[in-house]
Write a protein that binds this DNA or RNA. Sequence first.
DNA 1: ATGATTGCAAAAGCTTTGCAGCTTG
DNA 2: CAAGCTGCAAAGCTTTTGCAATCAT
Lengths: 158, 158
Amino acid sequence: MDNYSYLRIILSLSYSHIKDKISESGLKVTHQRIVILNTVLQMDNHPTVEHIYESIKDANPSISLGTVYKTVEAFVNNGLLSKVSTNEGQMRYDPKLDNHGHIYCSNTSEIIDYFDDELNDMILSFFKNKRVSNLKIKNITLQINGDKIDPEKDVLIK
Amino acid sequence: MDNYSYLRIILSLSYSHIKDKISESGLKVTHQRIVILNTVLQMDNHPTVEHIYESIKDANPSISLGTVYKTVEAFVNNGLLSKVSTNEGQMRYDPKLDNHGHIYCSNTSEIIDYFDDELNDMILSFFKNKRVSNLKIKNITLQINGDKIDPEKDVLIK
DNA sequence: ATGATTGCAAAAGCTTTGCAGCTTG
DNA sequence: CAAGCTGCAAAGCTTTTGCAATCAT
């Protein structure tokens, strides 16, 4: 068995994982949905619909932009993706579903995930001690706004 | 001096305050800007451009929608307003400039201000103890997402 | 006086919609 | 087979743009 065969097995395993996810979410499994979900899961930059469309269209010229819109929206409604809006009102899609904050770099238009369990606990326990009336809280997230100093390098908070 | 005269004085004082704000921000003082800024300051519901336009147009039919767009954008750039985007990517304008969070009620599309000094300090000191590299942080805000239970009543956290 | 601002209308995005034909379960 | 999904093109929004006329300083 050569390296290529291994690759094919890994790929097919990964697709079956994706098919399961789609199916379990209650949606029908179509070629378009597999391609789109697979793509968003591999992009870690919170893509826009246009980004997703651009990144799939060479290999899948028949998938239309409208389908990408409908598909990501279906994924959001069925809990496979979450939707993030930039400070400029542009919609981006995020495959990470656990509670996390975002760093918005206005000079590079990047959205970077920010996970910190300690911070999450701190905020959660803060609100546990508050009396919240007439609101059913779904989630609480932190938004860190700033500018990247060197646009080429990564941002790190630790 | 009757009640009406008092009212007129209060109004004119309030306009001169608004004129000063516009002028100090570096923008020229025009009728349109006075009306628009005055309106946004009085609306406490984070209006959209369309909301602002609707709310001024009966008394000021000559102010065009395009001018409202240009004006609020100028206000944001000159530090008189801040811009908030909803989870659906709609832009709203906020006259409150000090650091505060927002409660997003998805069932009523309301954005409610949330001030808490203790929380602000907590978050600030949390990040003071972190090493942040390659990012110039401008501000950190909290976003509380939820649904209003009774849409008619107010939300309260205390 | 001159540089900024306005109104208007057109254009540019971005997203949704309607529907006929096709596919999935 | 029925319900759901796709592709296409048109329509619907929101926002920006270009420019001549007007206004603020």
